[in-house]
Design a protein around this nucleic acid. Structure first.
Lengths: 163, 163
DNA sequence: CTCGGATCGTCTGGACTCGGATGATTGTGT
DNA sequence: ACACAATCATCCGAGTCCAGACGATCCGAG
């Protein structure tokens, strides 16, 4: 997630978006890069590796028991990549991997008390980061933006049906 | 650009976006993934490797003479990564690298006639792909979306000024 | 003219990602 | 009880990306 961006690109991305003001793809990329840079920055400041680390914590925070596989689907991270994230979080003692006694194949990652604290602290930093990215956008425009993005993202059409 | 996504993730991403309908970062990611999948699909169908390949062609299509370094900034691709893109395009004879006679360090990539044809053909496929991604969004909402994204992407605020 | 620093494109090393293979464990049919 | 397919986490290999190093070339100071 975050590691695909690098702060040195920020200016270039803005310039790029300015050069193609009508291209949806480019604007989306530039926008996601900008937001992610803010988030990664905030994450790094408080000891997290990535915004992705926080995303995993967020998914675990509701206390619901999830398989690693299920978790990987929820946070949209490849199951193999999730392993390294969980390893890191476990090393920081923000989560623990418990073995499901009813099926000893599966591991149930669970957030620890320290993890909960980290999540809570990051929440405010995260809001600030998003607010900074949304600087020049009014409240109702933000809501509209979320709606539109949601419609693009969750549209039911798939490649298979239209190819 | 495109290679960071994989079609198998499409459903998972949509599910993920649905799970966090108020999170800007996630929605942006999901949206950009969806659009990029379409574009990469269209690119692959006509012999291009990536949507990024097309982006490079687009930047060269205006005939303006550009250094590889300048070009890398315009299309937001790292200069070292751009090399492999140009190598590929040159192998397909869609571009040529000419040496600037006034400065023999610099190479001026230039689009060929075949490259121009490829660009023109891809333009329609690209429009179709974007239109498909923007299926349930009205015309004026599209314009608004582009404006908002543009404002996020090109905001003048930087990390340095706010840290 | 020449020397030193800056700038171009390219190469290299380390890190990351993901598809597919592997080992452990489960349930199911017989 | 036992073979066997299915499923979970993990590991491995191939591919990609980028920071930094490098050679080639340019330019300005002396």
């Amino acid at each position: 997630m975050g590691s695909s961006l690098h702060e040195s690109e920020t200016q270039a991305l803005a310039a790029c978006a300015a050069a193609y003001p009508a291209d949806l793809t480019i604007l989306l990329h530039a926008a996601v890069n900008r937001v992610t840079i803010y988030l990664d920055h905030a994450a790094a400041e408080m000891g997290l590796n990535d915004a992705r680390d926080w995303l995993v914590l967020a998914a675990l925070e509701d206390g619901q028991q999830r398989t690693q596989l299920e978790l990987s689907r929820v946070v949209c991270v490849d199951k193999t990549t999730l392993i390294t994230v969980l390893d890191r979080l476990e090393r920081q003692e923000l989560i623990v991997r418990t073995v499901d006694p009813s099926d000893r194949r599966v591991r149930i990652p669970q957030i620890t008390e320290a993890g909960r604290r980290m999540f809570a602290t990051f929440a405010t930093a995260r809001d600030a980061a998003e607010a900074r990215a949304l600087d020049g956008v009014s409240k109702e425009d933000r809501d509209l933006l979320l709606t539109l993005l949601g419609r693009i993202a969750t549209d039911t059409d798939t490649l298979a049906t239209s190819a």
